[in-house]
């Protein structure tokens, strides 16, 4: 990472810790509101399946020499659409989703073992490697996060209406299938964005834990979405700090911090 004419900004971005913080906050920004929908719509398995499929995407990117982000995004989007289709068939899809979520991971790991370059590096995609984030990664992460955020803001009223009650939404002319598609694609995008930060195994946690912690303190969907992003952001900072201080892996440390916030919030809400 050499820069020929260091200005204030470039010098700052040369610091791996600054890049890590920025990357983590980008993910937190998108994960907050999107995670709320995962909680409200009980899409935890959906998130798992999509995130696990990303490992397959990583293997494909290495094997065919395409951009890591594009490969991950394509495979995650494919999985998200498949799962959305299954979910639309009914609530009895729990088993099928479980099968998909775990076989996607297993297949990804098997595929990864055929790619020599990836074998060395596999754990960084499973658990994230936020400290290795470069400037191109930052562009992808913030571009993706802002895309997700604008996507959600654009569809917000329809998404919330569909989530609250599909029939009322349909009576108002909203097509729930469109909203499911929007969420599926947003989920695929967040997987591509977050895989470098917390890794495929913990992306779901990054979505669910902050949102769950925000639930007890929110009276409206908007408040919960904003609070979830704040909690995710705080978890990123705390996790990174803990990771430096105790020399622990950054991705799991971030989730551990979020889980701590969740535990404290649950205790606070208890009468």
């Amino acid at each position: 990472m050499s820069s020929t004419a260091p200005t204030g900004a470039t010098t700052m971005l040369d610091d791996f810790m600054v890049r890590a913080v920025l990357a983590g906050l980008g993910v937190a920004l998108a994960a907050g509101p999107l995670g709320c929908f995962v909680v409200w719509r009980r899409m935890a398995y959906f998130g798992d399946a999509t995130a696990h499929a990303a490992i397959l995407g990583v293997a494909a990117s290495f094997a065919f020499g395409v951009s890591l982000y594009l490969g991950t995004l394509a495979v995650a989007a494919g999985m998200a659409l498949l799962v959305a289709r299954l979910t639309a068939l009914g609530h009895a899809m729990d088993t099928a989703l479980g099968v998909l979520a775990h076989s996607a991971l297993a297949l990804g790991l098997v595929a990864a073992s055929f790619v020599p370059d990836l074998r060395v590096d596999l754990s960084s995609f499973l658990f994230g490697d936020i400290l290795a984030v470069g400037r191109t990664d930052l562009l992808w992460i913030w571009g993706g996060a802002l895309a997700i955020l604008s996507f959600l803001i654009w569809r917000w009223q329809s998404l919330v209406s569909t989530t609250v009650n599909e029939e009322l939404a349909m009576a108002a002319g909203i097509d729930p299938r469109v909203e499911r598609l929007v969420l599926s694609l947003a989920l695929a995008l967040v997987v591509a964005v977050a895989i470098r930060i917390v890794g495929a195994l913990l992306i779901s946690a990054m979505l669910i834990v902050p949102a769950a912690a925000a639930r007890g303190f929110s009276r409206t969907p908007e408040a919960m979405a904003i609070l979830a992003s704040v909690i995710a952001g705080v978890s990123v900072m705390a996790g990174l700090w803990g990771s430096l201080w105790f020399d622990t892996p950054a991705g799991p440390s971030i989730i551990a911090a979020a889980a701590t916030v969740f535990a404290v919030s649950t205790l606070l809400r208890r009468p």
Binding site: C36, V39, W40, R41, R42, Q157, S158, V160, S161, T163, V164, N165, E167, L168, A169, A171, A172, I174, R215, S218, R219, T220, P221, A223, M224
Partner: peptide
Amino acid sequence: GYVPQRVQIEQSIPMTVRRFLSLPRR
């Protein structure tokens, strides 16, 4: 103005009466 049968509101989403009235049109 339509009220469907057995409307069940998703309980995991925090929602005040006032906010609910602003769905989907503010």
